[in-house]
Structures are given as structure tokens and as C-alpha cells.
Amino acid sequence: MVNFNPTNRFSKSYPPNSVHNYLAHPSGTGGVVQIALFNSHRFAFYFWNLWKKELLKDRSSFNIDLVTYDWHQDLVYPSDGGKEELKKLDLDNNFEVSFFSSYKLNTLNDSHIMSAVYLDIINDVWVLCRQGTFESDWEDEYLEDFKGKRHTIRKFKTEDALRQALFLSEIQNVFFDIDLDYFTLNNNIEPTEKFRYIKDSEINNLIAPENVLISWIFRRLSGITIALEPEFTGGISKSLKYLSLIEKNWFEKALGSYHVRWRHLKEAE
């Protein structure tokens, strides 16, 4: 039997090699928001659960939709056995959830979203992605969680399509998730094939705080998760390059530093 109790009150339960910061809320209206950075995308499950619990402390219910940018769809459903395991997971024990995220979720990093949906950590899902061969791959999907609540999973080929759909929604709270392999144009490539990437100028436009979609997300933000996923970006140096582009657009300092501040809020002062 694994003991999931901390060894002392100063122990951190974060998954391995995760970086975590508290920031002023990017809307500029007060409050704070948290951001987490990690290698393996499945670690997002831990942070989504942690932040959802914190946000629920002062209210009886709180729906948070997920907006995720990813080359892959990462929408593998939990099996029947996986559902039973999820229902047994003690979501109030951060060490247990950290262990589960690190060593029990699929190491292909494609089951964390639907697992979080099944436990109603996440409400509905909005995926901006490139993976999808057939038109049916882009159709809406639905998942009934362990309490019988129905969740909708929507997939989009373009930023414009995602923006139009979100602007018509009544969403109030969002987890914003970025897998850095979204900035690649090809993926799952043969050993002889080279990665191709979006132009830096296009990435800057996509993630700029003044981008109307990013501004919409920031006003509703409940947390940000960023996955490096170097295996799918062409290596760790490529992941760090695209992380650096995000940092330069959003922050005055690199993530992991003390007192990280939003660049656009500083400029507005």
C-alpha cells in the first residue's frame, strides 16, 4: 500500500519537475491566477484538480471549461476499468493525485483531458488542434461523467472558428492549456523527416495579449497550464524557444522567477 501522506508540512505535492507561479490576474481587475509548466502534458490533470478545489472553497458549484491549443487532440476516453480507478481516486489528497497524474495516467499523454472531464474537474472542452484525418474527426463528442452530467467536447481547425464559437458561448471561467507542439506544422514524423514550424510572427500574433481571443480568455481565466512535450516539438531546445516566445509576449521575467508580472499590465500603468 502506497502512503500518500506528506512526510512533513513543507512537502510539495507537485508532479516531478513542475514549475509553478502565482500571478496577478491578467484581466487587471484584481485577484490572482496560477500558471504551471511541466514536460509531460498529463501533469495538467493535477493542477486542474488543485485549482478547481481552491476555487470551490467559497462556493457550492463552479464550472470551468478547458480551452486547449495542441497539435494532437489528446481526447482518449477512460476505459471501463479506468473509470473505476478514477472514481476511487481521492481528489482531496494532493499527493495521491500527483502520483496518479505522473504514474497512472497514460504515458502517451492523451488521456488527461477526458479523465478530468469524467470526474467533472473540467466542464466542456474546446480544442484548437491539427490532428484529424477525416471530417468525422472534427465532430462534437459527448461524455457522461461519473455523476451522469453530460459534457461536450468541441474541436476546431482554426483560431477563427474557435473564436466564433467561444464568443457565442456563455462561459465565465476557463482553464487555458497550451501544448507547445501546437506550434509545429507536422508531427508524429518519420525519423528522416524534419519538423516544420509556424512562423514566429504568426505565433506572436496568436498569443499576444491584445489578440481578441486571448483577451477574452484572460478575462475569464482560472489557471494556465503549459506542456513542453519536447518529443513532439523537435527537442528540448525547440520547446524552450517557443516557451520563450510566450514569456516575452506575456511576462517581464521568465517563469520560475520571483515576482513574475504581466507585461501588458505594466505597460498600462
Rank of each mutant, 00 (worst) to 15 (best):
S102V: 05
T133R: 15
K194M: 13
E144Q: 13
F232H: 07
L86K: 04
E229S: 15
E267I: 10
T133I: 12
E231Q: 12
S79Q: 09
R263Q: 14
E54D: 05
P16R: 00
R59Q: 15
P209V: 11
F62A: 01
W262F: 05
K266V: 07
W216Q: 06
H72Y: 00
F45M: 05
N187C: 04
I178R: 04
I246K: 10
V76I: 14
G30M: 06
Y22E: 10
V97W: 00
L185P: 01
N205E: 14
K87S: 08
G148F: 02
I189E: 05
W138H: 09
Y46D: 04
F251K: 07
N106I: 06
P16M: 03
I122T: 02
W250N: 07
K194A: 15
E170P: 03
I217T: 01
T233W: 04
R163E: 14
E96F: 07
Y46W: 05
N94K: 10
W216K: 03
N173H: 08
L86G: 01
K12T: 14
E210H: 15
I236R: 12
Y46K: 04
K266D: 04
H25S: 07
S60W: 02
T225G: 08
N123S: 14
L221F: 05
F45V: 08
E135Q: 12
E267M: 13
N17R: 09
A165Y: 12
L75W: 00
N49K: 05
K83Y: 08
R263K: 15
A268D: 12
L265S: 10
D137R: 03
Q164P: 02
F146C: 15
L143S: 10
K266M: 04
S102G: 06
N49F: 02
I64C: 04
V33W: 02
F167E: 14
L221H: 01
N94R: 11
A161D: 15
L228F: 04
F218M: 11
D145K: 11
K147V: 07
E141P: 06
T184K: 08
L128A: 01
R9S: 14
T107K: 11
E267L: 14
F251Q: 07
L50I: 07
A116V: 09
N106T: 07
I189V: 11
H41D: 14
Q34D: 10
A227R: 00
L166W: 06
P209L: 13
D181H: 01
E231I: 06
L75K: 06
